[in-house]
Design a protein around this nucleic acid. Structure first.
Length: 201
DNA sequence: ACCCAGGGTCATA
DNA sequence: TATGACCATGGG
């Protein structure tokens, strides 16, 4: 009914890693502006980002907020990515090892790591974010604030055999419909079902 | 003027 | 382990 969401919005695979950092506690509309700034400078690949002066890098991503910190985090991530051998080498790691490697980067926390695992490496991982807590608590699916790992592993265990596409869509829909600024379009008034209402599709 | 947005690190207790 | 301060922009 609501999908497919078609995540992650990016032109290249590495751009997903960049977007995952830029969107930390930030509206995606602002991330798009920052990505456009990077695109203008030709700074969407790890080599070119590392080659850029950090102050200018920060200026390019200014609209995404926290630009000084995020400029440093992007450089940390790029340095790690190249030193690790890029996608060909990283793809050979099992999901647990790859997750640990991502978490070793200063600026990459659990949610950012899991974003990258699902959307750039197509691993079956459940991403827990603020919307997940809000929605799961509201639905009574969790009694109190369990830890991040407990909820992630719990949902993954509850969906045995689910592939990366499943977790891709699940997280995307939780974000899209958990967003207070993204209310569903109202029905036309004559209709009672969204499926059949021409105004709300 | 305020609240919110696809978090994470660091210092402190 | 668990809080709190800090980072900072743009739209509703």
């Amino acid at each position: 009914m609501h999908g497919p969401a078609g995540w992650w919005p990016a032109e290249t695979r590495f751009e997903i890693l960049i977007g995952a950092v830029l969107t930390q506690n930030t509206a995606w509309s602002n991330v798009e502006k920052a990505l456009a700034g990077l695109r203008e400078c030709g700074w969407l690949a790890p080599e070119t980002i590392l080659d850029a002066p950090e102050a200018e890098l920060a200026a390019a991503i200014r609209p995404s907020g926290y630009f000084n910190i995020k400029a440093r985090r992007l450089r940390n991530l790029c340095r790690w990515f190249l030193e690790a051998g890029g996608f060909p080498a990283l793809e050979r790691l099992d999901t647990g090892s790859l997750r640990e490697a991502l978490l070793s980067v200063n600026g990459v926390g659990r949610e950012t790591a899991d974003d990258i695992l699902v959307y750039a490496f197509e691993r079956p991982v459940f991403v827990v974010d603020a919307y997940t807590w809000r929605i799961f608590e509201r639905l009574g699916l969790i009694a109190e604030r369990a830890g991040y790992e407990a909820l992630r592993a719990g949902v993954e265990a509850a969906a045995p055999g689910a592939d990366a596409d499943f977790f891709n869509e699940l997280h995307a829909l939780l974000v899209i419909h958990g967003n207070r600024l993204c209310r569903p379009k109202p029905l036309c008034g004559a209709c009672t079902l969204r499926d059949t209402c021409p105004a709300a599709s």
